[in-house]
């Protein structure tokens, strides 16, 4: 019965006493965002709903008029673009987290390492498409440092870190580059096994949040914007497996 009531709630239009903000969320941050959304909902009447996707695609949709209030990008450059196009005021952005890149295997005994990448038996590695994924660009840079001689290594591109994870999980490649938050938390890799790529090996994954035009008029968006910069959100983000972003 309670379950049915819950469905009904979800089908109702946003309740009169609260607003809803639509948040475009980089795929790597989707799980963490779900936790944040729950905590946020508990603090007041407002709600946030996520539209997860590859950052590049989300930005394209925003440029074509997608009705998002906030963007939680996987990088900084995407928000630079939105600022340059006048969709975001320069003051309405900040780095909410810094991503941690992991070389990951679904097999908990494999324990990926830089040596593994040098092993000629390894023929294929999965990574997000560098064309529209910041994690993909980071992974490409990391590969240059970790396996400089492996021009023969086949790259399997996922649409985003989320799809890359599915590829590795389903055996499309023995290892792949994903975000730590997808496979573990601040305590390290919890699912399968992974190697945390040192931050120095790739350009920093400065995951940037932006308050979009619509969000400036939406109380729920403004409330979440404040919440995201607060101490509670920061604890959740760090616990989920991100480095600390800019101070709020």
């Amino acid at each position: 019965m309670a379950r049915i009531a819950l469905w009904m709630l979800c089908l109702l239009p946003p309740l009169a006493w609260g607003e809803t903000a639509r948040v475009a969320v980089a795929a790597n941050f989707a799980a963490t965002f779900a936790t944040l959304a729950d905590r946020f909902a508990a603090t007041g009447h407002h709600r946030v709903v996520a539209s997860p996707g590859a950052t590049g695609k989300l930005v394209a949709q925003i440029l074509h008029g997608a009705p998002f209030d906030l963007l939680l990008a996987a990088d900084e450059a995407s928000v630079d673009l939105l600022v340059a196009r006048g969709r975001v005021r320069p003051q309405d952005r900040y780095v909410y987290a810094e991503g941690i890149l992991v070389l990951w295997s679904a097999d908990s005994r494999r324990s990926p390492s830089p040596e593994l990448l040098q092993d000629p038996a390894l023929q294929r590695v999965a990574l997000p498409n560098p064309r529209h994924s910041p994690y993909g660009r980071a992974a490409l840079a990391a590969l240059g440092r970790l396996a400089p001689g492996r021009g023969d290594l086949e790259h399997l591109y996922g649409e985003s870190v989320a799809q890359t994870l599915v590829f590795v999980e389903r055996g499309g490649a023995p290892v792949g580059f994903v975000a730590l938050a997808q496979v573990g938390d601040a305590g390290g890799v919890a699912r399968g096994s992974g190697y945390l790529v040192p931050a120095a090996f790739h350009p920093p994954l400065r995951q940037t949040a932006a308050l979009l035009e619509r969000g400036r008029r939406n109380p729920a968006a403004l409330a979440f914007w404040e919440f995201l910069r607060g101490a509670e959100a920061r604890r959740v983000i760090e616990a989920a497996g991100y480095r600390r972003g800019e101070a709020g």
């Binding site: 979800c10 795929a27 709903v49 539209s51 997860p52 996707g53 599915v166």
Partner: peptide, 19 residues
């Protein structure tokens, strides 16, 4: 645009769930 209740239809949600 994958917006719950507005444009997130079953096939898109399925894609999210798999990811």
């Amino acid at each position: 645009g994958n917006i719950p209740g507005e444009t997130r239809v079953a096939s898109v949600l399925l894609y999210d769930l798999v990811e």
